[in-house]
């Protein structure tokens, strides 16, 4: 890439490669190709797969997790992580159930779910940005803390009897087979895609994730950006808690257990670097669809859940290793 020395300023073109070339080389396209393959395999494997209502049902496998994955993607790109998200769901859902006992109606329950999510996000944000704790440690702590509180409140009991108006948020359909949750998923995909890729705030997230020191030296208020991202992740966990509670119609302390790892899997499968600094929302959207298709397809074949998680794990490693394998075969060297 070295250019010879000249004397006059020269014109430097804006872009090196054209748009089609960049798309062809993108992670998203590779992942999309894999998604199409899985789709085709599914249509061959089961005659029930292509039924629109079945496909619509399948989306519930990933929508709530994907809400959180969008915010998590931003957080991971900024170089942090939040492993307490499933704990936040448990606590938010428990708070909703508790409020239900006092006769709070559907709008109040939604407000409580979202507020608890936001509050939990604030706790994580303060621990990381004010006290300077590593986020992976701080949120492992709050993961146990949040879920622990639900266990104390609920023990082996469950909250039931949520009002029917709430059920729409989890089980309602907006138009034909398009569920409320799927609509929300598409809306959030657009919102987060815009936020990350088309705003100053998104640009600052990438800068922080790539080099927090240089970002500080460029006048970016790093702590503030990270605080906002923890708040967003908490809020999205609250939204997921509301939808999940509405869909299940009950709250147990084990609700959404171990979702944090499935969410991180979704984000990483979507091409977000776990080290921070790169990734896209489109990738996360495709990853959510791929995971949804795989779990649905295997479900139709009556494959047990544990085998499904083995398949997802294998898929993650295969997709992450693929670009490196190609490079290894081409050049004989990794990195």
């Amino acid at each position: 890439m070295s250019l010879t020395e000249g004397t006059r300023p020269r014109h430097v073109p804006d872009r090196l490669s054209s748009r089609p070339t960049r798309i062809l080389r993108s992670w998203e396209l590779l992942l999309f190709g894999i998604g199409v393959l899985i789709f085709l395999a599914n249509t061959q494997a089961s005659p029930y797969f292509l039924d629109p209502w079945n496909l619509s049902d399948a989306t519930f496998n990933f929508t709530e997790k994907a809400f959180i994955a969008f915010a998590m993607a931003l957080l991971i790109i900024s170089g942090e992580i939040d492993l307490s998200v499933a704990g936040i769901i448990a606590l938010a859902s428990t708070a909703m159930g508790w409020a239900l006992q006092w006769g709070v109606g559907a709008p109040g329950l939604v407000a409580i779910g979202l507020s608890v999510g936001l509050l939990c996000g604030a706790v994580n944000g303060v621990l990381v940005t004010r006290l300077g704790l590593p986020s992976i440690v701080a949120t492992i702590g709050t993961m146990s803390l949040f879920r622990g509180i639900s266990y104390i409140v609920l023990g082996d009991q469950a909250f039931n009897g949520y009002p029917p108006e709430l059920a729409f948020l989890g089980r309602g359909y907006v138009f034909w087979v398009i569920s409320f949750e799927l609509t929300l998923f598409l809306l959030f995909a657009l919102l987060y895609g815009t936020l990350l890729h088309f705003t100053n705030f998104g640009r600052q997230i990438y800068a922080i994730g790539n080099n927090p020191t240089a970002a500080t030296f460029t006048g970016i208020r790093v702590a503030r950006v990270k605080m906002i991202l923890f708040l967003l992740t908490g809020l999205m966990s609250g939204i997921a808690a509301v939808c999940l509670t509405a869909r299940l119609g009950s709250t147990r302390p084990s609700i959404a257990f171990a979702w944090e790892l499935e969410i991180v899997t979704m984000v990483v499968l979507g091409g977000v670097s776990i080290l921070g600094g790169s990734g896209s929302i489109l990738g996360v959207v495709i990853a959510a669809l791929v995971i949804g298709l795989v779990t649905f397809g295997l479900g139709l074949l009556n494959v047990p859940g544990i085998v499904m998680s083995i398949f997802i794990g294998g898929l993650l490693i295969a997709v992450i290793a693929l670009p490196r394998l190609v490079r290894l075969l081409r050049t004989g060297r990794v990195t």
Binding site: R10, H11, V12, R15, L16
Partner: peptide, 16 residues
């Protein structure tokens, strides 16, 4: 473009 040209930057493209 304005400022990199003023500084006589040598690069293949601005998205490098």
């Amino acid at each position: 473009r304005e400022y990199t040209e003023r500084l006589d930057l040598r690069a293949a493209a601005l998205d490098q």
